[in-house]
Design a protein around this nucleic acid. Structure first.
Ligand SMILES: [Mn+2]
Ligand SMILES: [Mn+2]
Ligand SMILES: [Zn+2]
Ligand SMILES: [Zn+2]
Lengths: 132, 132
DNA sequence: ACACTTTTTTAGAATCATTATAAACTACAA
DNA sequence: TTGTAGTTTATAATGATTCTAAAAAAGTGT
């Protein structure tokens, strides 16, 4: 398996469930956005077997902590995750409740002039809300 | 009362509870960020009487709909609101779990180059996460 | 003031995403 | 193989938010 090493190098045991989730999340050219429930559906369909919801949560959080996933700051009833962990921004279509990637080149450089004493900037994310 | 008109003009009856919440939210020079529970505490303290939690939720959502409050897109266990309804951005101090305003001049103009067919930009918000 | 309608408040219940629990299972190294 | 730490799982608990339906308050007309 191509993800065994990746997991081992992260200090995560390459379990059947984690490898399965890796397949669903990373075995594609395109990156995408998802909620836990969408991911659960995808697993059931694509892998044709069920992984406990608790494990899906655990794994997503583990991957997030390792930097393989990003959480997207948005106010929705469900939390959105992103397999695109590069610095980038988002459109949020309020009607469709869908996220769309904005490349850095679509936004241009953002220069934060204000400084807070003793704090470092960890990320700069732009959310562009869309309506009809 | 100074808020009676404001409420009437919005089609909201100026009830004791709404006026009280107006006092807490708007009777100050400084704008601020809050969660529903922080607001409830503030009411209990400042007005020395209790408003039902359901009413606090109802009122905050009514004020949001009328444009007197803004919801801040952030991933937190509680939803954050802002009495500053002008276009502006935020620092989010991950350690303290506190929001700090960024004026537009602290960020500079943001030009979204990508267009989505049939969709209009409703808002452009920058969230800058801070760590130690 | 009174009667009537509509809006609002309220306590408590329901919802639902997420997290905690703790027992069974598994990876892995000695 | 055996021991141990890590993982999975079903299920329960949590907690923010929303819903419900009855009581109270506000507005309107007389
Ligand atoms: Mn997380
Ligand atoms: Mn709202
Ligand atoms: Zn993205
Ligand atoms: Zn603000």
């Amino acid at each position: 398996m191509k993800y065994v090493e990746k997991l081992r190098n992260s200090g995560l045991r390459p379990t059947k469930q984690r490898l399965q989730i890796c397949e669903v999340l990373f075995n594609t050219d395109k990156t995408f956005h998802f909620t836990i429930n969408e991911l659960e559906q995808k697993i059931k369909k694509q892998a044709n077997n069920k992984i406990s919801l608790a494990t899906v949560y655990n794994t997503v959080h583990a991957f997030e902590k390792k930097g393989y996933l990003k959480q997207i700051p948005i106010n929705s009833s469900e939390t959105y995750f992103d397999t695109n962990v590069t610095d980038h921004h988002h459109f949020y279509d309020l009607k469709e409740e869908k996220l769309i990637d904005l490349e850095n080149s679509d936004v241009g450089p953002i220069n934060i002039l204000k400084k807070i004493n003793g704090k470092k900037i960890k990320s700069v994310e732009v959310l562009v809300k869309l309506e009809d």
